[in-house]
Each structure stands twice: as C-alpha cells, then as structure tokens.
Amino acid sequence: MSIVLRILLILFSFITMISMIKKIRSSKVQIEYSIFWILFSVGIIVIAVFPQIVTELAELIGVQSPVNMIFLIIIFILIVRLFQLTVQISQLEYKLKELVQKIAILSSDKNNETKKNPRE
C-alpha cells in the first residue's frame, strides 16, 4: 500500500469524524447514529497505520493486491450499513403512517362527538 494512499485514508477518516462531531455540536444528529461513523473512521485509521493487517488478509483470501482488499472491506461494511438503514427507513415510514392516521382520526369531528358520549 502506497504511503500516499495511507495518508489519504487517515486524512479522510479524520474529516469524517470531525464532520460528525460538528453535527452533534449543532444538535443535528443523535449520538446513536454517530457511533457507526466514529467506529468506521477509527477502523480505517487502524488499517492505514498497520497495513500488514490488510496484506495478510488479502493473501489469506486470495485477493491480488492489498488495496483491493481495502476496497472490499469498505464496500462490505457500507453494504451492511445500507441494509440496516433500509430496514430503519421502512420502520420509520410505517411509524409515520401510524401517527398520521391516528392524529387524523382523533381530530375528526365524528370522534369528538363520541368522546362527549362515552360508549358505556
């Protein structure tokens, strides 16, 4: 792995981390959601500082060059995260629908009348 690539990986990891922390400072992101990005950045920094990890892993799996191994690792992690986010978005949409429907029913005139005359 070239020294330039290693420096770039470290640089971009730090930028990612700082951007995330800035978002938390301005109350734009919940801490739960920043944890992934912080762990991800730390992981990339570790790989950039100790490239032997990737070199040996590449040999083990049979990937030609260590750089490809890094791409593979990053793509794999991002796909897993994308999968989780798809599930989360789907759940959010379901919750939003539930909320909208419930509020609409509660604020409809018909329901307000039944509230005045309880079922019992």
Partner: peptide, 16 residues
C-alpha cells in the same frame, strides 16, 4: 457499552 464509552470519552468533550 461501546456506545456509552465512546460517548463519554470522546463525544462529550465536543458537545455544547
């Protein structure tokens, strides 16, 4: 645990 430790040791230093 991971979430708490990262939050306490790292993130809390930068929150306002």
């Amino acid at each position: 645990m991971v979430r708490m430790i990262i939050s306490i040791v790292l993130i809390n230093n930068f929150r306002k």
